[in-house]
Design a protein around this nucleic acid. Sequence first.
DNA 1: TCCGAACCTTACGTTATCGTGAGAATCATG
DNA 2: CATGATTCTCACGATAACGTAAGGTTCGGA
Lengths: 148, 148
Amino acid sequence: MAPPQFRIGELARRVGTTPRAVRYYEELGLLPGSDRSDGAHRVYDEHDEVRLRDLLRVRELLGLTLVELREWMDAEDARARLRERWNEQPAPDESTRADIIRQAIAHMDTQLLLVRSRLGSLEQLEDELSAKRRKVRSMLAEIEQAQA
Amino acid sequence: MAPPQFRIGELARRVGTTPRAVRYYEELGLLPGSDRSDGAHRVYDEHDEVRLRDLLRVRELLGLTLVELREWMDAEDARARLRERWNEQPAPDESTRADIIRQAIAHMDTQLLLVRSRLGSLEQLEDELSAKRRKVRSMLAEIEQAQA
DNA sequence: TCCGAACCTTACGTTATCGTGAGAATCATG
DNA sequence: CATGATTCTCACGATAACGTAAGGTTCGGA
């Protein structure tokens, strides 16, 4: 019934980092303080694993600092709070829920803008490299032709 | 006749960095020692500007360290030496030239592989974000429907 | 209950990438 | 050639993102 749990060493191994780094991410507010209501050791589950993996991927692909990453992830957190409030006791009326959703969409638009900007730059770099390659390839073909 | 030249401050301003950074890049071997045969001040031209701009772009887009960048740029340097040797006094025979070209192509293939790998990852991230966005958008549409 | 492995906190060390003076030399201009 | 702006070379400082070592604690299994 209970979701499988594991400790910091397992988490680090799964996502390809170290316990020290994970603690550092927590210190910066990238990961939740993680239950720990009882004794001492941090406990995580697959949800935390997914979050951390996403974190590291976005960081790598967009070249963000950890602090910038926190801002980025505020979007995720907002969506999480949204899901919480969704089932609150005094169910929020529809116009409120619509506002929350619109906020989430706005934030995702910001993210998409950043990603697409990067994509455009990378595609341009790829084009330039391909063009150079074609040019040099044709030079080679010419020489081989002359040799034959 | 002579290509327009400028000093380190101008160069830095043009590419959006600082003189200190430029000197650091030179120290790491990313930029040539720059003439300086005469007195003291470093002198650059538009060619250097292009190189530096390329350098910083590749670094940003691929997230390379400056040392890794030097390896990356070894391709450019190889192609430059190639162009030099091309017009050497004892013109290299065709099979030698072909070998040089094949090396250059191999190096560019490595670069393209890296760029395309990044492109793939970024496209996947974009897909995931877009999907999420569509999902939330449909939720919003439902609510607005109910309100009407 | 006992033990080794894994974890805890605290604190200092490390590397990459520059920033920031300090003091002297160089360059363009009047 | 006088002078203000720019550049030069050390050299030390700063920040991010962890690594590493020390000394104590917790956990899971025999």
